[in-house]
Design a protein around this nucleic acid. Structure first.
Lengths: 253, 253
DNA sequence: CTAAACGATGACGTAACGTCAATGTCAAGG
DNA sequence: CCTTGACATTGACGTTACGTCATCGTTTAG
């Protein structure tokens, strides 16, 4: 004769590697209802309960919800195969989504480290198609494709070390611009920053006055640029627009 | 002058592809507090709010919690790079876990379809190391390594079509066993099933009487076997044990 | 002027438990 | 016998990021 095991809630919990609270939860929702010791009301888990718990934990590991597990175990006509195939499909979709997320996060990290350039398209690669379409349109309107290609070509011709220095320089310019804000957009401090900014852009392409002014607007109106400048200082974008306009006026004279 | 955009809650929600409820939620938790129209108390989203929402949605896409986003956006000294690197690590772990789950689910599906054999080790591959160790020990105790290897060797020598037929036969035997239950374990129906089961095992290895009796116990006591038989019929495992014992006694005479 | 559409707040529900809180029970030691 | 600590019970609230009413006031189109 095999002796019948009788576990208290804590014993079974330890055995199965879950918490007593989880077992009470399974009892409460009717998923696993053990017998009771009539003397004190304690839960008494016997072998059949242990077996059922095995099944529960296995299906839970497969990612099924407790509700799905309940119908799976209580209805003998339950189509487990079909349920698992659906489950597999759902898992695959989650995996694909995760993979996209990881890519976006990794590119963002590289971007922050300044080790690579990232087109705004890529930055927003994880977003909805709809959103994406709007952005494409906006970027198309503001600059032509040609400028973008030229920029990428020139950027690609730099060495890694050069790229790093250029990115660093860009960050320094924006920080100095913030430092120049108290003196006003027409101040020598601010105008010197704009000049450095202008020079800096030449790493990428030959900017015309129109492009400079367009960028000034873009920094304010394009949500992605604006978000970037917002991080540095809430008023940096409008400040730069003012300063750039003054700079362009003076250059035009 | 650029005209300042002013959105109602529904307009911004449509623009961003989220629900008005979500925007109210962001307001409630202090993540995005727009201005109000003093006349009627309506929320008024201006450009800065739109920008902040852009940042919120981007970070949310990266899988950050709203709380993390809040500290990220409200504290300028927040280390976004570090946070993203942690986030990347977490995502990778989720991905690895997902990959294991998918494998287990797929093997389970194949198992259910009877297109492959699956060792119990594999079936429980997604489980905790601790659990796993206990199972290994149990299986070692019950059968030696030799039987297992012999079984695997013999099984590997069959063709795909043979394997399919063997698995089908196995399922049929257990189903017939359930059908024989009303007649009792000593009935000719049940004993014929046990004979077929005995014959069936020879596909895998040469079972001694001891092994047959050991399997009968294993079907009842080993949670994995027991779970399998439980699926077919709650009383199948004890019934088979009785029938197998009777079968072995008769064979010994 | 009315009805539809939209706005506001408040409350409850979700999944799978974690975490008290208040209270009862059991086994061991002084 | 009593105490103490570990364990048991139930009940209730908290968690995440909103969805879904319900009730009410406001705006807008016909």
């Amino acid at each position: 004769m095999t002796t019948e095991p009788r576990y208290t809630i804590r014993q079974l919990a330890a055995l199965a590697g879950i918490s007593p609270r989880a077992l009470r939860h399974y009892d409460a929702i009717g998923l696993l209802r053990p017998a009771r010791n009539p003397a004190n009301g304690y839960r008494l888990y016997r072998r059949e309960d242990v077996l059922r718990l095995q099944q529960i934990l296995f299906l839970r590991e497969l990612g099924l919800s407790l509700e799905a597990i309940q119908t799976a175990l209580d209805r003998p006509d339950f189509d487990l195969l079909h349920a698992l195939e659906e489950q597999r499909q759902a898992l695959r979709e989650r995996q694909a989504r995760l993979a996209r997320l990881i890519q976006t996060v990794e590119r963002t990290i590289l971007h922050l480290k300044g080790e690579t350039t990232m087109s705004d398209n890529e930055l927003f690669a994880g977003f909805s198609e709809e959103q994406q379409a709007r952005y494409e349109q906006e970027i198309e309107q503001r600059f032509g494709d040609r400028q973008l290609n030229e920029s990428r070509q020139r950027w690609g011709s730099y060495s890694l070390e050069q790229k790093r220095r250029i990115m660093e320089e860009g960050g320094a310019i924006y920080r100095d611009m913030v430092a120049a804000m108290p003196y006003g957009p027409a101040s020598p401090q601010a105008q010197a920053c704009v000049a450095r900014w202008h020079q800096h852009l030449r790493y990428f392409y030959e900017p015309t006055t129109e492009i400079l002014l367009g960028l000034a607007d873009g920094y304010n109106d394009d949500p992605r640029f604006a978000a970037f400048f917002q991080r540095l200082h809430p008023d940096l974008a409008p400040f730069m627009r003012s300063a750039i306009r003054i700079y362009c006026q003076q250059a035009g004279e």
